[in-house]
């Protein structure tokens, strides 16, 4: 086969990883000792991410605000219990996810059950197979791309959306995601696969080659 510009066989760039700020541990230690300014720095560092997480899960701005407030407050109240075995941010995400799921279940009690069996076998086979052409990050302005991503992820059903959010946006490990959601590791893996394939399919309409932005 002739050389294609797509070459998944090339040594791949590792999936991006969020930069861990070196001073996170020091800030947490200071906050534990009662330094409110240190805690405020942590809030300022993570508020946007926690708000996006809460919004992606609850799909409601008011609920997302409540979730963010409750998550930061709870994290401060329970800071003494944080052992430092994981990143502070991972711990904070887990608190925020619990709050968000409670909101979601309260709002839609009959629609949100994360632990029920979901069919992950149907419609996973890609239907549209088209190269995406130029990098989407180059084709769209950041705010525009952000809008595309948030509306696309909103189209996923909660069991898939939440697993994808934790695993591929917040970068929790499969095991951490399973623990945070009370799911088995195989359940996380199968939902994640389906979420990734569905999102790929949905993004295809924006990013396929020849599609004007």
């Amino acid at each position: 086969m002739s050389a294609s510009k797509l070459n998944p066989l090339q040594p791949r760039t590792p999936l991006p990883s969020q930069v861990v700020k070196d001073d996170e541990g020091a800030l947490v230690a200071a906050a534990k000792a009662g330094d409110i300014n240190a805690f405020e720095t942590l809030v300022g560092r993570y508020e946007r991410k926690i708000f996006r997480l809460a919004q992606n899960i609850t799909q409601n701005k008011e609920d997302a605000e409540d979730v963010m407030q409750e998550a930061f407050l709870k994290s401060y109240q329970h800071l003494g219990e944080f052992q430092g075995n994981s990143r502070f941010y991972t711990w904070l995400v887990r608190i925020a996810v619990n709050q968000a799921l409670m909101k979601l279940r309260k709002r839609r009690p009959n629609q949100v059950s994360l632990d029920e069996e979901v069919d992950t076998g149907e419609d996973t086979m890609p239907r549209e197979v088209e190269d995406w052409g130029p990098s989407p990050e180059e084709r769209y302005k950041q705010a525009e791309l952000g809008g595309i991503l948030s509306s696309t992820i909103a189209e996923l059903e909660p069991p898939f959306r939440i697993v994808f959010q934790l695993r591929d946006i917040e970068e929790l490990s499969t095991e951490e995601t399973a623990e945070a959601l009370g799911l088995s590791v195989p359940a996380v893996k199968s939902r994640l696969l389906r979420a990734r394939l569905k999102l790929r399919q949905k993004l295809n309409r924006y990013f396929r080659q020849g599609e004007n932005s």
């Binding site: 998944p8 990883s17 946007r48 946006i169 990734r196 790929r200 295809n204």
Partner: peptide, 29 residues
Amino acid sequence: LENCEDCRVVVDTTRQTIQIFCNSEPAPL
């Protein structure tokens, strides 16, 4: 993958999907 262009495209665009979300910056509050 060496012999199947469709699968190459699916693998590559799935990888890009993960990377785009992972790299995306949250909007300001």
